[in-house]
Design a protein around this nucleic acid. Structure first.
Lengths: 212, 212
DNA sequence: GAATGAATCAAACGTTTGTTTCAATCGTTC
DNA sequence: GAACGATTGAAACAAACGTTTGATTCATTC
């Protein structure tokens, strides 16, 4: 009982999130959103102020819980290991799991669009605002777990790992392009574990002594 | 002398490529393209048939040389190592280098958009058409170099590696969001080497015996 | 130098876009 | 039940969109 009354505002957010994820921000019209949500066209500009503000709201509704969870897991790790470096796999899990696994729905897919520049310029700033405090907490932790890497090298490896995550979130992108159904698609839980293992092995590898 | 006469068609392609990369397909209007290229609005629909056909032309102009080079490098590897497995790093280089390094300009950035679904549905098919033959050649080669991995595991690891490449191509995406200029940004050549080293270490790591 | 086809041009086409308006409705409070 | 602010409704707004038109220019060929 007492099922949450799905308000107009929430219906708009749900539909907008899905359409933005599937078609992108610019390709999605407010008329499509409101029609699919069964609400009046004007209600978007009433509850939010503009289409772009709607995008911001869609983003913030999900990113806040995700980042809260990330910090929660990181706090738990730091409490568990005190001053010891946190095992790399645990650190990667704290960073990846909330977005990859704990959050259902289409937001992870939309997040990849956010990551690789969804167009509105003002949005880049919002994205940075939410990611910066996460980076400020996680980067030193990674540094303690991988003391052999200088910061620039570490940063680059984190970037590559994030790229792997994005590939996982975009999911079908490559699989359906190339695979003819010949590949076993693992559960998200298994895929996350494999991503962590992949990233950990790569991040631990010795620094190359190639030409610089 | 005999400098190539920059035709209207080429000017449109150049400007469209840059604007599509910076702003996305839907957010870029034909009026912006033609104004910036200094050509008439109607010339887009004259030389190409539609805006979407222009996107296809922008894509095919670059992807063909890139994929030709990829197969060239793979052929060279196979000739050099005969029936022996090709060293993993060499394989990764054959796949990454043409797009990451040999191709200048903004196309690599645009390619990331292509990879993570730029909207028009008909475009996904074009993208797949060009990537499939590459996958069909490279996947068996990877399999020979990493015989310990079953195909699904290998495919997933390749996907993660491609994600790392995408992150490199999108370049500033994370660096400018988080880094306060504190990180040394390596040359593309060095970055490619580090990407290859990263991916090779990860792809070679033993398969986990975690819960499945 | 007239004629032919390709290329460019300014202008307009009909739609669709995000946004605004203002009246109608709803639920709450006095 | 009157009055009120919050929400919804149908309709219109100007602006921008991709595309088409038809005249004009250009280079080439006979």
């Amino acid at each position: 009982m007492t099922e949450p009354p799905i308000t107009t505002k929430d219906r708009i957010l749900d539909v907008a999130e899905r359409l933005f994820a599937d078609c992108g921000f610019e390709a999605t019209s407010l008329r499509t959103i409101t029609a699919e949500a069964g609400v009046n066209l004007a209600s978007v500009n009433y509850h939010f102020q503009s289409k772009e503000a709607l995008l911001h709201a869609v983003f913030e509704r999900r990113v806040n819980p995700v980042n809260r969870r990330r910090l929660e897991l990181l706090d738990a790790c730091e409490a568990e290991f005190q001053n010891e470096p946190i095992p790399l796999e645990r650190l990667l899990e704290a960073f990846f799991r909330p977005l990859v696994l704990e959050l259902g729905g289409v937001f992870p897919k939309l997040f990849v669009r956010f990551l690789y520049l969804e167009s509105p310029n003002t949005f880049r700033e919002l994205f940075a605002k939410h990611l910066r405090p996460i980076a400020r907490r996680f980067f030193p932790a990674f540094h303690r777990s991988l003391p052999g890497l200088d910061p620039s090298e570490l940063f680059m490896r984190i970037q590559f790992a994030v790229g792997g995550m994005a590939q996982l979130l975009a999911a079908k992108s490559l699989a359906e392009v190339i695979g003819e159904g010949s590949f076993t698609i693992p559960s998200h839980e298994v895929a996350l574990e494999k991503l962590i293992q992949f990233a950990a092995a790569a991040m631990r590898s010795p620094v190359s002594r190639g030409a610089l």
